[in-house]
Design a protein around this nucleic acid. Structure first.
Lengths: 238, 238
DNA sequence: CCGCAGGTGTCATCGAACTGTCATGGAACT
DNA sequence: AGTTCCATGACAGTTCGATGACACCTGCGG
């Protein structure tokens, strides 16, 4: 279901770019902004990767070996599975802009090299918003707790914290909705997944494990228990 | 007690299914789980039934005579009255899942035939929970008292106040209807629940507990007692 | 192949918080 | 004064969350 997914996982970008240096730069910047990145170096590989990884958005270079960006885009539009997949076409300045737009390829947006990363990200977010998948932040924080999604790392006061997979997702969810109280059922939906059958009481146990992990000796307990209601990530206890 | 359906009185499901046998099976199982069931056999009837019966959730078959499930869903999304109505789309296994997701119809979830009833119910519950979830902004206030529903917090003059579950619901109800006097019976219905047998005098006790909690030393008592009538949230005393 | 370690879900138990009821005293009304 | 109604403190029963224990699973390296 769309929402749980977009809340927990970050949007996946397929970067189709044959120039390795540029691809690396893009990966670095996009991951910093909270995207996950897949790469393809030519048009054929791009089509394969789309089927395999089902990205949320494609960044497509105009000039490519094997199969041009135009052609890749057309093929994407031809298949019903990828008809609505957002595509941003990357063109070189030398290309005549009118020509590019005139060739009705079906790309959702265009950007010309060289481009600022900020501008690119802005356009990507705009498109993703339309497709209802706004990227999560790459780095979440609350009080003195920090979570680096890309590196899969959690710290409290610069002290590294080890969490199991479930506790990690639980904390991630809390960090995305600080101060808000969630029932056990809501947490099960969001963190475990909808049709997983798990006892609501199991949430208690994971809350305890999370507390044990992130609350050092004489540190504030940032998980608030609300009787008959649920749990919240919060600084002020009671 | 197999926690039938969350809180509120039995939710109404509209089952849109042209295959009579399946519809009957669904009705049987859903009713056993505490749902009320309405049926529609084609797309056009589905739209009519939605207006007439105002269901809490719709179970919508993909392939339908008269008007396809896709189209029904789109029309539901178009009207503001049904824009947020939860819809679960039922698709046959033969349909390509990617196709289904690619055609962005606005369904809230998908399930493929054949499906287990348990999985279906789990998804329905999840959606209903989300539909009933507290809006992020929800905040009630009266005089110098503030209640944040999402965070489950109460303050008076920026002083945090701790309330037990019942006192919390009681104050919530008062905040939703300030200045109005309620009899003990009305309060029991609204705060405790319609079919709970509790002595009316018990309300007195909870009123006292609420007063004790929210009235600091030399602060105005915001709960007014009306002899022979009941209680109200009010600033002007006696 | 086996054992091991980390991770996960369930359960029984304990204690604290909460709840409903009553007895008593006092205030308000007639 | 007498009656009615509410406030209050006490209390026993219940509910609910915290906790420790444990069995199962899965992946990994010996």
């Amino acid at each position: 279901m769309p929402d749980t997914v977009s809340m927990l996982s970050r949007p996946l970008v397929l970067v189709v770019e044959d120039e390795a240096a540029l691809a690396t730069m893009l990966r670095y910047n996009l991951e910093k902004q909270g995207f996950r990145v897949e790469e393809a170096a030519d048009g054929q590989e791009a089509l394969n990767r789309v089927s395999e990884t089902q990205p949320d958005i494609v960044l497509l270079d105009w000039m490519l070996p094997a199969l041009s960006g135009i052609e890749v885009c057309r093929q994407l539009r031809r298949r019903s599975a990828t008809r609505d997949l957002p595509v941003i076409m990357v063109t070189a300045r030398t290309e005549d802009q009118d020509t590019v737009r005139g060739l009705n390829t079906g790309a959702d947006d265009y950007i010309t090299k060289p481009f600022s990363v900020d501008a690119l990200i802005a356009r990507m977010r705009a498109l993703l918003r339309r497709a209802n998948a706004v990227p999560a932040k790459a780095r979440l924080a609350f009080h003195d707790i920090t979570m680096d999604l890309a590196a899969h790392r959690v710290q409290r006061n610069d002290r590294p914290i080890h969490l199991g997979p479930t506790e990690f997702r639980l904390l991630e969810f809390f960090l995305q909705h600080p101060r808000r109280v969630f029932t056990r059922e809501e947490l099960l939906d969001a963190v475990w997944g909808r049709d997983i059958h798990v006892e609501p009481r199991t949430v208690d146990v994971h809350i305890r494990r999370l507390r044990k992990a992130i609350n050092g000796p004489n540190e504030l307990d940032v998980v608030r228990t609300v009787r008959a209601a649920g749990y919240a990530l919060d600084t002020e206890a009671r």
